[in-house]
């Protein structure tokens, strides 16, 4: 298996945290859902094939989870936020085929810009070149053979 195989995706992980200053939960969830949708649409628009765009948003003890697995930006939500949102954290895991990491990051940054995060962390996840390994995420072994049997 090589990086050029079509089923090896680009994997982006984003972690945001900040304060939405008591924004109503419906509004925060709507913003969150729209950002996930915009990320999916943006990646599709850039020629990517969506593996999945998944994100969780936590505020206090509450969590809403969003998932988009198609190129039309349709988002499915699980759970919800019930209380006004102050401090929040968002974790996004985006897996998209046939797209460059820098394009994905740029799309996601723009999509989530409304959250004006105080901290943001971005990871590009590595892949494994082991010819027998069918998993794209072998960050520790990036570019190395990880199994010799």
């Amino acid at each position: 298996m090589t990086r050029d195989e079509p089923f090896i995706p680009t994997v982006l992980v984003m972690e945001l945290s900040g304060d939405l200053e008591g924004r109503p939960p419906e509004e925060a969830v709507s913003m969150f859902s729209a950002a996930v949708s915009e990320t999916a649409l943006g990646c599709a628009g850039a020629g990517g094939t969506i593996g999945h765009i998944k994100a969780n948003m936590r505020s206090s003890e509450e969590m809403v989870s969003a998932s988009s697995t198609t190129e039309d930006g349709n988002v499915r939500l699980r759970f919800s936020l019930e209380s006004p949102v102050r401090g929040y954290t968002i974790v996004l895991n985006a897996i998209v085929y046939r797209i460059e990491y820098r394009d994905m990051k740029s799309i996601a940054e723009k999509a989530f810009s409304g959250f004006r995060a105080e901290t943001s962390v971005w990871h590009k996840e590595g892949i494994c070149n082991d010819p027998k390994c069918s998993d794209p995420d072998c960050q520790r072994h990036h570019g190395k053979t990880v199994r010799s049997d």
Partner: peptide
């Protein structure tokens, strides 16, 4: 088992 260094689905199932 998730691709990527953070778990998303685990949190969902954990609920």
């Amino acid at each position: 088992n998730e691709i990527g260094s953070v778990g998303i689905d685990g949190e969902v199932l954990n609920k």
